Every structure is written in C-alpha cells, then in structure tokens.
Amino acid sequence: MHPRRTSDDPARTREFEAYVAGAGGRLLHTATLLTAEARNDNPRARHLVTLALAHTYACWDRLHGEDPYDHTRQDLAARYARGAWHRHGGLLRSRSRPTGPLAALTPQERLVLVIRLYEGVDGDRTAALLGLPVERVRTIFNRAMATVLSPARRPAPAVSGVKAVPS
C-alpha cells in the first residue's frame, strides 16, 4: 500500500509547478480566446485557468498516467460552458459582451472553434468532451469558421464637413 501524499508534499508540489510552468501560458491563451477578452485585460480567463488548475492539483495523485493537460483542458472547457451560457428561451447566450478577435461568435461557437483549431482536438473527441453529437459539432465548427473568415461588413464611417449634394 502506498502512503497517502499530503498537500504539503514537496515532490508533488514541484511536479505540479513544473506542469503549470509548461502549460500555464497555453491554458491562459485558450481561456482568453474562449472568453473573447483582450490579451492584456482578461480577468475572466485568468479566473477560469486558476479554477481549472486548482481542480487539476486536487486530482493530481489520481491522474495515474492520464495527461494532466487534457484533464485541465476538459475542466477549463466545462467551467467556461457553465459560466458563459445560460438557458433563455431555449437559446444559449453570453452573459457579457466579448471584445476579442472571436467576439462575433457565440460562446458555443467559440468553444468548438478554440478546442478544434487552437487545441487541435479532433471532431469526435470534441463532441465527446462537450456531450454533443459529432454532426452538431461539425455544424457549429463550420458556422464559426464561416463567421471568422467572412466577418459582417461594418457601415462606412461618416464623413464630416461634407455638404449634401442637392438632387
């Protein structure tokens, strides 16, 4: 029988700190993309990563060869989904106004796009992670890509100091 490791185990702490040093930046970038916050002003993303890493640390001894990054990413995605979406009239809507490069996407579209493109998770694993059918994930991904690649046109800026031409 193995002795129970305590939270003040220095080897466990060093191992986890090494993991965070290697994965923390990427996890924060992922969370920032999910929340659509600005890169230098991302309190929601930082909070999500902190909670996901705390959960991973709490489970550290039970991972038994499981990829800690995959575990943290799953927790991060679940926390984002629970915090960013709420049911209102059967639709998923964001609670706050995103401002980042993926701001035009819905929270669900951002989640699928970030997991698929930035994290490199295939469609089947993304579907399993989110508890959605593979076809639904594919549809969401395609819609998100279309939105990102063909953003809505903005109105032309107003020109000041120009008189209207009489007709």
Rank of each mutant, 00 (worst) to 15 (best):
P10V: 05
A11Q: 15
T13Y: 13
T13F: 09
R14L: 14
R14E: 15
A18G: 08
G22M: 05
G24M: 08
L28N: 04
T30N: 07
T30H: 04
T30S: 02
T32C: 08
A36Y: 00
R39N: 13
L48C: 08
L51M: 11
A54F: 03
H55Q: 15
A58I: 11
W60K: 01
R62G: 11
G65C: 12
D75Y: 08
L76D: 01
A77G: 07
A78R: 12
Y80T: 00
A81F: 05
W85F: 10
R87T: 13
L91G: 10
S94E: 10
P98I: 01
G100C: 07
P101K: 12
P101R: 14
L102H: 05
L105F: 06
P107M: 06
E109F: 01
V114Y: 03
V114S: 06
D122Y: 02
D124N: 14
R125V: 09
R125Q: 14
G131M: 02
L132Q: 07
P133G: 12
E135C: 06
E135G: 02
R136M: 10
R138Q: 04
F141D: 12
R143N: 12
A144M: 03
M145N: 13
S150G: 12
R153I: 13
A156H: 10
A158L: 09
S160H: 14
